[in-house]
């Protein structure tokens, strides 16, 4: 997929640039793009390291467990075919907590383990079970408390209040999650 996007963008740009006489601007774009991408990475680097570190400390201090416990009644209702003390529910709750804390790297392995457990519960068929659909939809709707990268980028480009978007982010992701879960329930047959 990305191969076609990358290729498509470059071919369109070159053809378009030549036909509209923007050839030299195109060369500038390449050079500046390469330069900008690295300054962008260095701008993000400090914050990414800091936040991953803080979140690891949070997770070791028991934040993940606290959130997991708070979420467990909701999750139990969402995943009806999963037992109360099952491994599946445990992995799901770890995955959701890690996502909330913005620990994408930690969330994925938990998520994969959860899928493995759901697969066993779903008679190991090649068709996705209701619970699997619900779980994956939950993971495609971003549910993080602190979008640190976005905040850092905004500050880097001169925002006065880089984190003023937080309430909007929370409301938007909550609505998106509600629609995703609602629809995934509605479309079951």
């Amino acid at each position: 997929m990305l191969n076609y996007i990358f290729g498509g963008i470059i071919i369109i740009s070159v053809i378009f640039g030549i036909f509209t006489g923007n050839g030299s601007a195109l060369a500038d774009g390449i050079i500046n793009g390469a330069k900008d991408s690295i300054s962008l990475l260095t701008a993000m680097a400090g914050m990414m390291l800091l936040w991953s570190g803080i979140m690891e400390a949070a997770s070791q201090g028991g934040f993940t467990k606290i959130i997991g416990r708070a979420l467990s009644p909701v999750l139990r209702r969402l995943f009806k075919n999963v037992g109360k003390d099952s491994k599946a529910l445990n992995y799901i709750s770890m995955n959701v907590s890690a996502n909330l804390l913005g620990l994408g790297n930690a969330a994925t392995p938990f998520g994969l383990s959860a899928m493995g457990e759901l697969y066993k519960l779903g008679n190991s068929s090649e068709k996705a079970s209701d619970d699997m659909v619900t779980f994956v939809v939950m993971n495609t709707a971003s549910i993080q408390l602190m979008p640190t990268i976005v905040g850092t980028l905004r500050q880097n480009y001169g925002s006065q209040t880089p984190f003023d978007i937080l309430p909007c982010v929370w409301i938007s992701s909550a609505c998106a999650l509600a629609v995703g879960l609602g629809l995934s329930k509605l479309l079951r047959r």
């Binding site: 090649e126 995703g180 879960l181």
Partner: peptide, 19 residues
């Protein structure tokens, strides 16, 4: 190795549009 994802994609994309 699930190949039939049923209504996952449509629900997830509806969520993205809602966002």
């Amino acid at each position: 190795k699930i190949t039939k994802t049923r209504h996952t994609l449509i629900s997830a994309l509806a969520a993205d549009f809602t966002a």
